[in-house]
Nucleic acid binder design. Sequence first.
DNA 1: CTGTTAGCGCTTTCAA
DNA 2: TTGAAAGCGCTAACAG
Lengths: 338, 338
Amino acid sequence: MSSLPDRQHVTAQDVARKAGVSRAVVSRALSNNGSISPATRARVLQVAEELGYQVNFLAQGLNRQRSHLIGVIVSRISDPFRSSLLDGLLSEIQRHGFQALVSEIHNEQELAETLRNFTQFRVSGVIVTSGKPPEALVNQCVQLHIPVVGINRQPDIPGVDYVCSDNEAGATLAALHLIRAGFHRFGWLNTQNSTWAGRMRGEAFAQALKQSGVNIKHHLVSLVAKQEGYQGGFLAAEKVGLDIQGIFCANAQLACGFLDGMRKRGKHAPEDFQLIGFDNTPQTEQYSYPLTTLHQDITELSRQALAHLLARTRNPTRPSQTSWVKVSLIYRRTSPSV
Amino acid sequence: MSSLPDRQHVTAQDVARKAGVSRAVVSRALSNNGSISPATRARVLQVAEELGYQVNFLAQGLNRQRSHLIGVIVSRISDPFRSSLLDGLLSEIQRHGFQALVSEIHNEQELAETLRNFTQFRVSGVIVTSGKPPEALVNQCVQLHIPVVGINRQPDIPGVDYVCSDNEAGATLAALHLIRAGFHRFGWLNTQNSTWAGRMRGEAFAQALKQSGVNIKHHLVSLVAKQEGYQGGFLAAEKVGLDIQGIFCANAQLACGFLDGMRKRGKHAPEDFQLIGFDNTPQTEQYSYPLTTLHQDITELSRQALAHLLARTRNPTRPSQTSWVKVSLIYRRTSPSV
DNA sequence: CTGTTAGCGCTTTCAA
DNA sequence: TTGAAAGCGCTAACAG
């Protein structure tokens, strides 16, 4: 003899009936939107509670033309830095009451499809941590008032906001640290298909060396890894000249691989050469990889990303903004002691 | 002079108008569902293409009472095994044309809230990789015909399907491998708040030793780490007796930490002690952590999870099933050579 | 094979 | 403050 209807879910209609009001009132009570007397509101909420009412987000989204979903585009999430970043992003997304639609992509085409899919779900925003979205699609998002924010992407699409670690500053810190140790022969290690962030780091590193009087033509060697990640760094170490002194790596995985590759050759940091990485992944604080590294502030990166998203939601036509997040040098045991 | 309406999105109505048919026909053409002449179908698809029509998933889901979303519950995804698992799951989910709603939880209460949120989006299924969902909520899912599948969870809730790595078999392999090396003093390392899978591994390890004639009362010491992950293993190594010979770890992070903790004490595997881990994370194939380990077949785990989901979608009342996925011992350099 | 119709469950004017 | 009514965009049952 339950008073519940035969239907599967309790609807606003059910609540309305039981509370003796109209559906509209129920909607107002729950959304805190539109005027309603405190008394009615309380009663409706009470009944809703009793009935275990839960808003149907699909219906709500359909009506509002916007779901409580935020699309996140990632790739290779088993990479430690990327999974940490995703972690930070998820926390932040959930903290703001959204749910994350996560999509892993393997190429630009999948990125395009994913972006389309996201719009079909009327997401409240898109966060791109990997790949470069085709401008046409992004423009469509912009037109639909779906905020798009890129993390560590080249800030070049109008209408998109960006948040980037301050790669230049980081690379400069690395260069200065190495120079102060009195080195003369420097190395820069990156992968063949580097991201924009990686390239920035390399350019800034060279630039900083140069400004400190290093003849980079002769004293900076550029190592390019054929593969991404640990393996790439490991193999790159096989053929590096052993007279090299201070090496800066585009990211943590490359650095760990390089360190191991050198170990295999019997060379160790900081005695035989010195190494600075980027990212400060958990692995680089482990006993066996005590890597001096530039710390990316993932929490801040995530916060800023959401902040941009929300700001643009309020004002869809505001000019594009890029936030630069400070990086800091973490001194460990692969570089000169300070 | 565009023929497009002023509205933001192209709707089925627009396509219908331009193709000179009714909305229903458009729906049929796109969903391949309900009879329609090949000619009309082709024409409709053509027009849809031209107009750049995209189904509104919110409306579709509202009507069908089911979205193309699959909820995934995770925690601590910066842990290498977990991020690898998530990776596998995402691939599999996307391969089947779903989108993943990923939610990171920190306790059972968040799990409950998340589960509710998922149902509010009318997900097509839920995959739980962490925590133990309250049975009441799960029952609600079951009633709503939302399939729930647990990965590496204790298979004990009716109506839920499970896929687990074969922990017993893995632990037995480990025990046998260590015994064959002629050892007498064994160790088992796990965290204080272990998962069910971890406990299973420990029990099976002890059991296997016993069956091989080891007096586990005296010759098996159980180390419990106060913290999870690398740090837990590292600290656990600080106080282990140095006469220990063969140690089995509940997971890869503990094992790496333990290895490093012992290194700090000047003890190395396999010379001074021997170590077998679980999970075969990428890190354990690195030069500095050449860990003998049990490989969890993430691809298979993911496939089975989706298979259960789809099977139960077709037949919501089928009896609960548990799939056991084979694990294999990967021989590296922390254990006796074979 | 195709069109009409009646919802799916919610929000939001607009009157009362 | 409240209710009635229209509509978000799509699907499915039913006639024709």
